[in-house]
Design a protein around this nucleic acid. Structure first.
Lengths: 337, 337
DNA sequence: CTGTTAGCGCGTTCAG
DNA sequence: CTGAACGCGCTAACAG
């Protein structure tokens, strides 16, 4: 194991000088810097991140918290992309990470969780898939022992950043496109349309935003809108569709999983209705062809969130970061490439 | 941050004594041990794992390597369960982990990868979803700088353990059950059956085993068996089924994803055939109801693998660990609970 | 701008 | 069985 000492010896400078070029300190002469960099390359030196973290006390470690309860609006697919994006980005930024599932932390109370995380050198929380039900994780965040970055939860504060798409606009966009296509196929007046909106949780973080979006569209186009809450549950959405879809022309869902539930209900009822989802899960292509959905770039979101985590680590205040979305239609054959 | 020093002071002993009880050393008096443990509890002390790793040089850190190319036989679903199982088990065993996707490592050559991992304090590799195509990761393992645990790859050696189900028996079991059910429904003689087996990679690790299983069954029951290679690709399996399923009664696939491809081909052909899969993905329930599949308990497999990683860390030799499998039939409504 | 020095929190000798 | 002392690899004052 080649250490900083070896590099210093090879370059003929002091250890601290090596440390300084390593950490991009300004006060190093160009000559020294070059010698050090040459030595580093020659020795194939890679700094020991654990030692650095220990010494600096400045815990540059990001705790990645993932919601394993994949019955939530995002499935494993989203979680994997979140993870991949966050891990990749963190490595590019030379930030250490430590990954947890919510369930691993929930067994302890907030103070224990906090102590445990500190003992692991954690300096900032990066939370994916938080919902109102996750009391334990929320309590941890509320303790304010760590700055936090929340993904897909439009809540920010002094030491809390949030990263995600603009929920209101996204819901508006996908619903508008879906309804326009519906009109195109079936002709008729948008204002005579009967639309069912299956929202998420009644008191959810994102649900309010998305519902605002659909209401804005309803006001604009003049269609009649009925809102029900599916709690992001495939089963509940299926149940709602089973009883309510007969007298509705278009069914718009606040998540792909709920849309899938609706599609299965329609199949059972042998009913044909226009449906759209939200999230951009590949799973959609398996469950129903040609359904519109808001496509979120989970990987990109995770990268932005990781960058944001670094800012928070440096003491910057919390803010809201928007990531662009798009509206697409999934086709099975495109999907399996 | 409460450190070992505080504990020692509180307990009225030396730092080294605390360290000894922490690491379960034998030579500590019962009296001291009790005092120390009391102090630990009182102060809510949690050892700093980074400092411990740095000091002991004995890197108890497990590198979890995950194959992000989810086009492989296992999807995101399996990967998430692998991760969850491994992370949970590691924490229970107080082992540090660091998670990578194959793609994060592949950009470097084997020696660089090895150095990088060492600088991160990695002591053992825990590899999920390795295939023959992953040259870079294989090269890393072959360097023998780290002991390794391979999941679902029946290959073991001096410093390589493998964990997984018995592929041969599993393929035999699921095919047998499927064929028995087919006979039950359609009556007739098994020996007159025409069976298509869509295997994985021609030179894959597991493919040989599974193919052995189906051949054993074919020999036993006397049905005619045609073997094709789908490379674990949904698309290829679909292509094979498109041309070959007309004159086959039963189609047995070496992965769920391929079975899904087959189901979609059959739907397109408006053909009804008995199909079975392998892996136990929930996705099956979306793509086709009531299909038999080998159910692998990914979480359990990951836990066993993590335990195995700990043994390897302690210098134990590599071995093959078998995890039980089961045969189930997925139903959509059961699945969405 | 450079080198020396003192820790970070812990494991591990090695005298007592 | 115990405790003082050293060092892991690195950062951060501090002198020079």
């Amino acid at each position: 194991m080649v250490s900083i000492k070896d590099v210093a010896a090879k370059a003929g400078v002091a250890i601290s000088t090596v440390s300084k070029v390593l950490n991009h300190y300004p006060n190093v002469s160009a000559a020294s810097k070059e010698k050090v960099q040459a030595a580093i390359k020659e020795l194939n030196y890679i700094p020991n991140s654990m030692a650095a973290a220990l010494s600096s006390k400045r815990s540059a470690r990001i705790a990645i918290l993932i919601n394993s309860a994949s019955s939530y609006q995002t499935g494993d697919e989203a979680n994997m992309q979140y993870l991949s994006g966050a891990l990749n980005c963190a490595r590019e930024l030379s930030l250490d990470t430590i990954t947890f599932f919510f369930s691993m932390l929930e067994e302890r109370n907030a103070e224990e969780m906090s102590r445990y995380l500190k003992s692991q050198g954690v300096g900032v929380l990066l939370v994916f898939g938080l919902s109102r039900e996750d009391r334990a994780i929320r309590a941890l965040i509320d303790r304010n022992d760590f700055p936090a970055v929340l993904v897909d939860v439009p809540l920010s504060g002094e030491r809390i950043s949030s990263v995600g798409i603009d929920e209101e606009v996204a819901q508006y966009d996908v619903a508008r496109k879906t309804i326009q296509e519906h009109i195109g196929k079936n002709s008729g007046d948008p204002s005579s349309l009967r639309v069912l909106y299956i929202a998420g949780n009644g008191n959810g973080y994102t649900t309010a935003e998305r519902t605002k979006g659909i209401r804005r569209l309803s006001d604009e186009l003049g269609f009649s809108l009925s809102v029900r809450y599916g709690d992001f549950s495939e089963k509940k959405a299926r149940g709602i569709a089973l009883v309510a879809s007969a007298e509705r022309d278009v069914i718009i869902c606040a998540s792909d999983l709920m849309a899938i539930g609706v599609l299965n209900a329609l199949k059972e009822l042998k009913l044909s209705r226009t449906v759209c989802g939200f999230g951009g899960l590949r799973l959609m292509a398996y469950a129903g062809n040609g359904i519109n959905t808001v496509k979120e770039d989970f990987e990109l979101i995770a990268r932005k969130a990781t960058e944001e985590a670094r800012y928070m680590l440096n003491g910057e205040p919390g803010k809201r970061v928007y990531v662009p979305h798009s509206v697409t239609k999934y086709q099975y054959l495109d999907m399996i490439n």
